[in-house]
């Protein structure tokens, strides 16, 4: 059963990542692109977790955790840039 569900889930999450990529490309505003990038990181975490289940290996969680952290830190940094870049403090 898992043998049919996991590829299906791969397809669904992959489609989600493609849609997010589309939003990243068309924008139109900078916060939109940051949001898309953040969502892409979360989608990557989902894909890695699925891959871990498929490979039957628990080794991939460090990678998932790292991508989740990097995504968050990147989003915060970019937002801080938007918040401060236009205004002289």
């Amino acid at each position: 059963m898992l043998n049919t569900v996991v590829p299906l889930a791969f397809a669904l999450v992959g489609l989600a990542a493609l849609l997010t990529l589309w939003r990243l490309l068309i924008g139109p505003s900078r916060p939109d692109r940051i949001l898309a990038l953040d969502t892409l990181a979360v989608n990557a975490v989902a894909l890695i977790v699925l891959f871990g289940i498929r490979q039957n290996s628990a080794l991939y969680f460090e990678a998932a955790l790292l991508i989740a952290m990097m995504g968050f830190v990147g989003t915060v940094a970019l937002c801080k840039y938007l918040l401060r870049g236009d205004i002289i403090e």
Binding site: L2, V5, V6, L8, A9, L12, V13, L15, A16, A17, L19, T20, W22, R23, L35, A36, T39, V42, N43, A46, L50, I53
Partner: peptide, 17 residues
Amino acid sequence: LILAGAVFTLIGALGLV
């Protein structure tokens, strides 16, 4: 759980688009 997770992820991305 896996299917629900994948479907929710897809819906989130759909909303984004």
